[in-house]
């Protein structure tokens, strides 16, 4: 996923779409908006980021899972949790440097799935689909001709907390 911070206005449509699409319980979020202000007045820089699980290449949450509930799906390298295998030990939550997971009120670890149920049917994730400024782009980084590959090769970008060594796969266009 690639998110253009120059276009994101922090309207939270992505957050609402995710909650609706995935029936996220009240008080919990799979995605959220972070606003970062840097600099010294009057030279301030504002960046708005729509954040969620980074579906890392190097997944500490999958590695630490004692039951195999946390896993990478076979098709699209999306990090998922099989609810019926999760014991709710919270190791994956502690292992995630982005704190992108939480315990669902039903007891299992929950997180963004990139709306895999939609993607498998040829649709975009709900958050990407509803974005009114079209700041979010979803695609295959393995395909050099995909929109996401072209965007990160043509524009300045950064992932979140690269120093944690998880090789996150959401890039923010600066």
């Amino acid at each position: 996923m690639v998110i253009d911070t120059k276009k994101c206005v922090g309207c939270m449509d992505c957050v609402v779409a995710c909650k609706t699409e995935n029936d996220i319980p009240e008080g919990h979020n799979r995605d959220w908006i972070v606003t970062i202000t840097n600099g010294k007045y009057p030279d301030l820089n504002l960046e708005i980021q729509s954040q969620r699980c980074n579906h890392c290449d190097n997944t500490p949450c999958v590695a630490c899972c004692p039951t195999g509930a946390s896993h990478i799906n076979e098709v699209g390298a999306v990090v998922l949790v099989t609810h019926s295998m999760c014991i709710g030990c919270k190791a994956c939550i502690a292992a995630c440097p982005y704190s992108a997971r939480f315990i669902h009120p039903d007891g299992y670890a929950d997180k963004c799935t990139f709306c895999i149920h939609r993607v498998e049917n040829g649709k975009l994730p709900a958050c990407v689909n509803v974005c009114p400024t079209h700041c979010m782009h979803f695609g295959d980084f393995d395909d050099p001709n995909s929109e996401v590959s072209r965007l990160i090769s043509s524009r300045k970008n950064h992932p979140l907390i690269p120093e944690a060594g998880t090789s996150p796969r959401i890039f923010y266009l600066a």
Partner: peptide, 26 residues
């Protein structure tokens, strides 16, 4: 008591995950 999904605790003993210290611990 700490487990969120207590009824599924038996899942710990259906597998062994070499990279998971919690699996080792179990």
């Amino acid at each position: 008591l700490d487990l969120g999904h207590k009824l599924f605790v038996w899942r710990l003993y259906t597998t062994f995950k070499i990279l998971s210290p919690m699996s080792w611990g179990a």
